[in-house]
Write a protein that binds this DNA or RNA. Sequence first.
DNA 1: AGTCCAGTCCAAAACGTTTTGGGTATCCGC
DNA 2: GCGGATACCCAAAACGTTTTGGACTGGACT
Lengths: 344, 344
Amino acid sequence: MSPVTIRDVATRLNLSITTVSRALDGYADVAAATRARVETAAREMGYAPSHMARQMRRQRTDAIGFVIPVTRKLEGGSRAFADPYFSEFIAGLGDEATRHRLDLLVSVATEEDEQPIYERWARGRRVDGFVLNRMRAHDWRARFLLRNSLPFVANGREIGEVTYPFIEVDSRSGFSQLVAHLAGLGHRRIAYIGGLPNLRSQSDRLSGYRAGLKKAGIAFDKRLVAAGDLTRQGGYLAALELLQRAPRPTALIGMNDMTALGAMRAANELGLQVGRDVAIAGFDGIDDGAHASPPLTTLIQPAYSIARQSVQMLVALINGDPIVERQIVLQPELVARASTLGTS
Amino acid sequence: MSPVTIRDVATRLNLSITTVSRALDGYADVAAATRARVETAAREMGYAPSHMARQMRRQRTDAIGFVIPVTRKLEGGSRAFADPYFSEFIAGLGDEATRHRLDLLVSVATEEDEQPIYERWARGRRVDGFVLNRMRAHDWRARFLLRNSLPFVANGREIGEVTYPFIEVDSRSGFSQLVAHLAGLGHRRIAYIGGLPNLRSQSDRLSGYRAGLKKAGIAFDKRLVAAGDLTRQGGYLAALELLQRAPRPTALIGMNDMTALGAMRAANELGLQVGRDVAIAGFDGIDDGAHASPPLTTLIQPAYSIARQSVQMLVALINGDPIVERQIVLQPELVARASTLGTS
DNA sequence: AGTCCAGTCCAAAACGTTTTGGGTATCCGC
DNA sequence: GCGGATACCCAAAACGTTTTGGACTGGACT
């Protein structure tokens, strides 16, 4: 059962390996009869070209890399990416990758552990390109990959002018909308639970929040801003504190849905009914939000299709094809549900 | 910025590529001084061996493959693996893989689409081994991989005698425990929401359920058994129906946590308070269950560490190392929470 | 009867490593 | 001053493809 090589096929047919290769690759300079012989022989012998050898020759790996970000280690050394946003994202990457006959290499790492992985993949030329996610305000990954001239598509972007291709959701305008939504429902004390300060999206979303307040004629109050860490637990803790402050906020916006779901739990524990006693909203549009009780008001960013588009762009970059749009900004879609509207 | 090869390093130092290779690989037959020269030169030039070439020579890919199972396509062609169980599992695979300097190749596929992926990876010798999950009662993958003599570790196993290595959670005994737990709380009408009939775990869990009933002296009633599809939606629909049957079941067991969470939602919608009006329990121990309101009673199966162990076994298989335990059966841990205990 | 062309086929190079099987000094003991 | 060990180094093969640059037929056209 040792793997059958192109040479085996060639000797069996008394042909050169060149001809076998060309026959299978559909070149025009092989006789129809020969091609047929080669094809049946290959099928019978169970021949498939060795991916390694092919890569070696073509100087391509036919693989793209994605490092799943994870905020912290769980106790006991265990570590999980709790955010279903990434499940959707990975599904998108996987689907689009197989469509292009690419393989998807993944790894799971915190921000501190990620560097060796990128280096290993880049240095060892293990992948043809990268998809980057959760961009930081200043992100060494972009510079590293540019320096090594490895193609990548970013999901979000750093602060300042940026030349590399990215797909981004305009979370600034999203959060502004969200505040407008809440203000429209009569809320004046709208709190915000942010995330890791070095994330680009953190500053965007916070500034969207502030812009929204301004538009609604509400003064910004920094005591209404708390820090989470993008996890449910982070949102839970932050909300627990916020909701026990002197004039209690009547509405809570989480930087992402997981944060908001954690906040919902905190509200429950304090005996507050979400949607009636306190409004809570998030950002992402994950499934769990839609199925929570009450269902969570959120801004939907289409993780699945963003992932697919990212792969498409990346493929174009790798092949050197012209790219129509190198820098895409999508608008999130506000979906108002019972967590802000009350029983509906 | 074109990649620097071993030859570049060699010519710069007036050494043979052999010596450079051996110096970097730590062989004894290279002078200490030379090794030092090589090492600094390599570092300065940013040399790292090409993974492709190394694989080619060693006839190893240093990668393992995992196909994430997904039950159904969502509307709009989109597809996601909604089950956080797999997030944890993948995190475990990823962590352990990097510990062994292996790469993890993933793909996302429904049961119908998976075959080409396995074939591509196996035929093209893209990976050194596989981790299999969600084993079916009769699973072509095991036979396919055995036939092609590719190492793999199964998570669960097929029906009947099985020779390949696997790690399994004894869900039969788990479900029996779960029924005992509910019976102990006074429940007599305990319903069961199952899953896809071809899954091995389906028959195990159902038979555990029946064994539990028997032990508790409760007659099996097939009208209390419904079919889900392992998703939240499936659980929701099944529960909606079950809870509207003539003598309403007082307890619901979901085949997995997602099913149970869906059932909780159905109960809510019907105005039933989970934990008081109806008890609900699941299986998996995912995070969302612990954070649901009320928190979900469940049987914890340690996805993260199962995944890590699977990789460890797989590595041993690949290297031909002796394996202490080829077939591991773990006991799930019953965690009783408010969804069956009531307010606690 | 040469020239050209289309139709088939192939030998050899190349991709970047690791490993095999030596080769050449240098040094030691006698 | 010689045999043999020791320390260091290297040429070449091999891994399995794809691609380059022809080579060899016949037949058609001058």
